[in-house]
Simulated scan of single mutants.
Amino acid sequence: MRIATWNVNSIKVRMEQVGDWLNKASPDVLCLQELKCESSQFPESYFKELGYHALIAGQKTYNGVAILSRHEAQDVVIGMPKFEDHQQRLIAATINDVRIISAYCPNGEAVTSDKYQYKLNWYRALTEYLKALLSGNDQLVILGDFNIAPQDKDVYDPEAYKEEVLCTDAERQAFQQLLSLGLVDAFRQRYPDDPGFTWWHYRMNAFKRKMGLRIDHALISNALLPRLQDCQVDTTPRGNERPSDHAPLFVDLSSSNPNS
């Protein structure tokens, strides 16, 4: 089972790029973030023709998340039930007995801004939400744009980003809190030393100069770890004309526990 994630930075602008990637990578599930359109404006019919059903939590101009799936989805939930928020940042569904969450975590803007405090509060709520989910379902994957580079190795220039948003101690501690619930960073599990950058600024020719950050992640529950086959970043779409500033990330799980 291949489960992927991609912050597309406007689905209207990059619909065909997403379609091309679906045809090439053939994931069973693709989690999307930063749709930047209302649910009614999402190109659902386009993806249906490609064989994907769409679960959508859209929002005009900003935010918005979706799950595209080849398979039937059950128990769809939008947002975190115990966290009141007008921003569409989370959608979850059960697909092939795996609870899958598409997450667009807050950016935080700057350490001195109210948005940074919102980000930390949002992460505290996410931790409680996942803790409750894991208590009733050990087959869980949360993928998306976490807007956190967990370690210095995830940043092309750690000194330049030291205690800047995306790399502050508080944000990194929030990320570690998620892992402490019983989740595994799938990419780091497979590739401990590879930078694995998923985002590059549009300025300074950052992509070609390998000036990236690893801020998109796939966290899998400990129970799914025996099924983990691979987790990779596909940087090819970042070289497209008018690309998203993020690259897709995918995780491959075997169909069943090989140790069972």
Rank of each mutant, 00 (worst) to 15 (best):
P106R: 01
Q117T: 15
Y118R: 00
A125I: 03
N121V: 02
V98D: 08
Y118F: 12
Y123A: 06
V98F: 01
Y118A: 03
N121Q: 13
L126D: 00
S113P: 02
T127C: 13
I101C: 10
I101N: 01
V111K: 08
A110M: 09
A110Y: 05
Y116W: 04
E128K: 12
L120E: 00
Y129R: 02
K119C: 03
S113H: 06
E128M: 09
R99G: 12
P106Q: 05
N107H: 11
V98G: 06
Q117H: 12
L126R: 08
N107E: 13
R99D: 03
T127V: 04
S113N: 04
V111G: 14
T112R: 13
A103H: 08
K115E: 03
T112Q: 15
A103S: 08
A103F: 15
Y118L: 05
L120Y: 07
Y123N: 11
C105T: 05
S113F: 01
D97I: 08
Y129E: 09
G108E: 04
V111I: 12
I100S: 04
Y118K: 08
K119G: 04
Q117V: 11
S113Q: 04
E109H: 08
T127D: 08
A110T: 13
N96A: 14
E109N: 14
V98A: 14
W122V: 06
V98Y: 02
K119P: 12
I101D: 03
Y118W: 11
S102C: 00
A125Q: 15
P106S: 09
Y123W: 12
